[in-house]
Every structure is written in structure tokens, then in C-alpha cells.
Amino acid sequence: MEPIVVQNIFKQFGNVSALHDISFTVAPGELFGLIGPDGAGKSTLFRILATLLLADKGKAMVNGLDVVKDYRAIRRQVGYMPGKFSLYQDLTVEENLHFFATIFNTTIKENYDLIRDIYEQIAPFKTRPAGKLSGGMKQKLALCCALVHKPSVLFLDEPTTGVDPVSRKEFWDMLQRLKEKNIPILVSTPYMDEATLCDRVALMQNGAIMQIDTPSTIVSQFRTKIWAIKSNDMYRLIRDLRAHPEVQSCFAFGEFLHVTMTADPEEVRSSLTTGGHTGLVIQPANAGIEDVFMSLMQAQTQAV
């Protein structure tokens, strides 16, 4: 049985279409990522799956249970970490965990195995109020609280937003270890680079899924040739390339610009050199998820 099944979900808030015909399934033990910026509809989708919102149209099942009819049963089985840090700031780390264990009718001890790895990292601060923890620590505590009742499905809504790269890496390491315990995880993130850490991802924008697949397939199916270009004056380089008639897109990507073009690279090189650019590097680049996302976004905008 697929732990998460979403079929043709629609959701509207006033005039704004928050979700538009969303369908996907998550396989047992899979780490599934919803990748997209703020406002893509990720949180709305999580709330529908966590039985907190009703979809306008469509069907969704968690562990074979309907999110509308069997909401009570689902609520007992899922672990949910909402988008913003939602723990009691004035309770200590330990009190928070204890409280969430109790309301799920269990104890910290009973499921300690599951949270040991994570809890040991925050245990030194267990008498500190949750509000005084650093961003990364808060996320770890929130994960512990979502895991303490041994859920059979885990929903994590933007667990790494606003957290520094080190804590983000640690957090994803934890998710990889949780995967070994065979808990299916649905996680959302606005950081495109985190997509590669998921088994499969759905790229979301404006309430619609643009593509679903494994990160490697998504990247390998991307046919457009990408060139990495840099020079000593990046700002002028961007303007010059965008002005070039045979350049389709030009975006900053780390130290390089990622450029798609129909022009011959040697021709571009010579025209840039005559334009006075120095330190010019033009080389083929491997597309990343972000390249794909941006090209899908442009296609979506043009389609509207």
C-alpha cells in the first residue's frame, strides 16, 4: 500500500488558486521532496494531508485512509512539523518533548530509539526554554517532537528554512538516517540544492506541479545545453549577454553565469572580447535542478 496518495487536488482561497490539479504518490520508505518557493502551495498541500484543511476537489489518502472521512485515524498516525517553528517557546526542551509525547498517549522512553540520534544533540540544552535555542537546534527539537509518537508517516513543512547551511546539512543527514527506519517522509523546501538529497521530488510553482521524478532523471532529461560563462566584470557580462540576440536566458549561478543560447560559443567569445571583457571563461556546464526549475518556470509563465 502506498503511504501517501494524492489525486487531482484543487484548492482555492478566494480568487487565488493555491493548488491546481496536484497528483502524486509516495512509496513506502521514500523520501519525497516538494521543491518550490514561498507561495508555491506547499504548506496548503501539507495541511490537506494532515487533515487540517479540506480540498475543494480531489482525493488524498494517507496509509490508505481518506483525509476527509478518516481524519481521526490519520491524526494518530502521522508526525507533522508545520512550517513555522511551532513549539512552546516558554517551555524547556524537555518539557516540550514530554508534552508532545503525552498528548499522543506515549512516553519519551517508549520511542527513545527513534529519536535518540537527534535528541542526544540537543540533550545538553534540555533545561533551556525552546525560545532561546538557535535556529538549527529548534528544528531538531521540532523534529523530535514530531517523531516522539513513532508516526508511520512524517510530514515536514520547510524544516530548513532560515537555518544556516551547517544546520541544514545536519538536518538532512538526520533525514537520511530516518529513512533507514523505513518511515516515508514528505518534506518541502525552497532550497533547490536540497532536491538532490531526496529520492524523488515534485517541482512546484504557483500551485502546480511542474515535474515529478528522481532528481537525477530530472537533470538528465534536461536537453537544453547550458554554458557557464564568466569574466572579470560580471555585471557588464550579464547585460552584454542578455543583449545578444541569440542568447535565450542568462542567470547568475555561483561564480559563473548559466547561459542558454543558440549562438556558437566561439562567436560569443570573440564578440565579448572585442567588447572589452577580460578573464573570459566559456565552458559547457552540467544542468542542475535549479536550471531545470527556472526553465520550467519560464515555460509555465509563457503558457499562462
Binding site: 494532515a50 507533522y80 511551532s86 508532545f100
Partner: peptide, 13 residues
């Protein structure tokens, strides 16, 4: 406001 209500609602309480 805190968002804890979401977790409480999702709990069996």
C-alpha cells in the same frame, strides 16, 4: 498564532 494549534489538532486529543 504560534502554530502549535496545528500540532494539537493533528494529535489524537
Amino acid at each position: 498564532e504560534l502554530g502549535t494549534m496545528e500540532i494539537l489538532l493533528v494529535s489524537p486529543l
